[in-house]
Amino acid sequence: MRFKSQIKNVNLFAKFCASLASLGQIAWCRLNDDDVQFTIVPDKGSQVWSVLKPETVFETYILQSASPKNTINLEVPIQALSRALRSAYNATSTQIRLTKKDNVPMLSLTIVTTSFSSGTNVIALPPSTSGDGEPDAFDFSESALSQANGARERETVITQDIPVKVLTMEVVERIHQPRTQEPDVNIFLPPLAQIKTISDRFTRLALATTKVSSNASPRLELSANMHGSLKISVKTDALNISSRWTGLVNPELDPAHFPDGSQGVRDHPSTKMKELGGPTGENEAGWSKVRIDAKDWSRVLSVGRVSARVIACFINEGGLVLYVYLPNDENGSEDDSCLTVGLKSWDSPDTYADSRQYYISSFAA
């Protein structure tokens, strides 16, 4: 079993792992020839399913195992990996590999940094010896001092080891991405930092106006329609406030991803929802709503550090799925990889196990 790679996009990978670390402590990492998957399935709260194309973060990608597609499954303490990657910012090179130390599997991060220091010698150059054996005078000329005090390059190598657990195929077969109903509303979200600021303010106000423990979490109601509107609200016995965005974009569905083509798009719940509501959003039937835990929502919004391009898929009274596109290079172009975060509505019945899986590829480019 072998895994070794040179990381080309350390900043993106570090932000990605930091986002995962804010949502859970342990991640399942699945490496194979086609992609790299990170999954967090906590006992409660949001679930994270992400797929990275190797070229998104890795320059070289060497993988070898006895499983099909050279698959390697690891249980990774994602917070420890996130901390290790933070020390690789501005590194000259960063390499990650699977190794063993004292028979314990490790993800070993080798970080090379280069720094420059200036010389501080008082005497510029040592004296030379003349023919009579007597030392010559020291050279204090400007050129000599410049040579003595010039910048010196210094290379530092740091190794960070993260203990991991290698999982068998039998163990991971029990881990499945949850199935959901087709969403009623698909909408591009405004900047997540903006949403987080408003959501956190609503949460504080709700806590301040209710007689509950400070550890309790209010429920935020999120709703959206197929005419570019998004609303966040909170309601308590003493408080009822909301904030609304308009002019957002509802992505179009791609007929190529439906078995019956254009007819599949016409029959889709989001198409029917668009017909129910109007541009003003006055018809409540045109809105899809979910109620989610405020603290869990705040943690989920940390994915905003990875990408500004996020699609939210609303399943009315059921749940919310966020698709976070990851840029493939430092210029932020061509986002083939995707991080998926699923949140269950607080009062949602468990009726989604047998429904059809929904994929982000349904959207037109």
Score class of each variant (00 low, 15 high):
residue 193 A to F: 09
residue 189 L to E: 12
residue 208 A to E: 13
residue 188 F to L: 11
residue 223 S to G: 09
residue 225 N to T: 10
residue 187 I to K: 00
residue 222 L to F: 02
residue 226 M to I: 06
residue 194 Q to F: 04
residue 182 E to R: 07
residue 205 L to S: 12
residue 190 P to L: 01
residue 188 F to W: 10
residue 194 Q to M: 13
residue 183 P to N: 12
residue 227 H to L: 09
residue 194 Q to C: 11
residue 187 I to P: 01
residue 196 K to S: 13
residue 212 V to F: 08
residue 218 P to I: 13
residue 213 S to H: 08
residue 230 L to Y: 02
residue 204 R to T: 11
residue 183 P to C: 09
residue 215 N to M: 15
residue 186 N to G: 03
residue 182 E to Q: 10
residue 219 R to C: 11
residue 197 T to I: 09
residue 212 V to H: 14
residue 203 T to L: 07
residue 195 I to L: 09
residue 221 E to R: 13
residue 224 A to I: 03
residue 200 D to N: 06
residue 206 A to M: 10
residue 189 L to P: 08
residue 188 F to C: 03
residue 219 R to D: 13
residue 227 H to V: 05
residue 216 A to P: 05
residue 230 L to T: 07
residue 221 E to D: 14
residue 198 I to S: 07
residue 198 I to H: 01
residue 228 G to R: 08
residue 192 L to E: 04
residue 183 P to E: 12
residue 226 M to V: 08
residue 203 T to D: 10
residue 207 L to I: 04
residue 196 K to G: 02
residue 192 L to G: 02
residue 220 L to M: 03
residue 183 P to A: 09
residue 182 E to G: 00
residue 228 G to E: 02
residue 210 T to S: 13
residue 210 T to K: 02
residue 187 I to L: 07
residue 186 N to P: 01
residue 228 G to S: 07
residue 226 M to N: 08
residue 204 R to L: 04
residue 209 T to D: 06
residue 207 L to R: 03
residue 209 T to S: 14
residue 185 V to Y: 01
residue 198 I to Q: 09
residue 213 S to C: 13
residue 182 E to K: 05
residue 230 L to G: 02
residue 229 S to I: 12
residue 223 S to P: 05
residue 200 D to R: 12
residue 194 Q to K: 06
residue 212 V to Y: 10
residue 200 D to L: 12
residue 202 F to E: 04
residue 187 I to A: 05
residue 198 I to D: 08
residue 216 A to K: 11
residue 183 P to R: 07
residue 218 P to W: 01
residue 205 L to N: 05
residue 182 E to T: 11
residue 226 M to A: 12
residue 183 P to D: 10
residue 202 F to R: 05
residue 197 T to G: 00
residue 208 A to Q: 07
residue 190 P to E: 01
residue 227 H to P: 01
residue 201 R to L: 15
residue 193 A to Y: 06
residue 211 K to Q: 15
residue 202 F to V: 11
residue 229 S to F: 05
residue 187 I to G: 01
residue 206 A to H: 01
residue 215 N to H: 13
residue 204 R to F: 03
residue 223 S to T: 02
residue 228 G to I: 06
residue 193 A to D: 14
residue 224 A to F: 05
residue 223 S to D: 12
residue 195 I to K: 00
residue 196 K to V: 05
residue 209 T to R: 03
residue 214 S to P: 04
residue 196 K to N: 11
residue 196 K to T: 11
residue 189 L to R: 03
residue 201 R to Y: 15
residue 213 S to F: 10
residue 192 L to F: 07
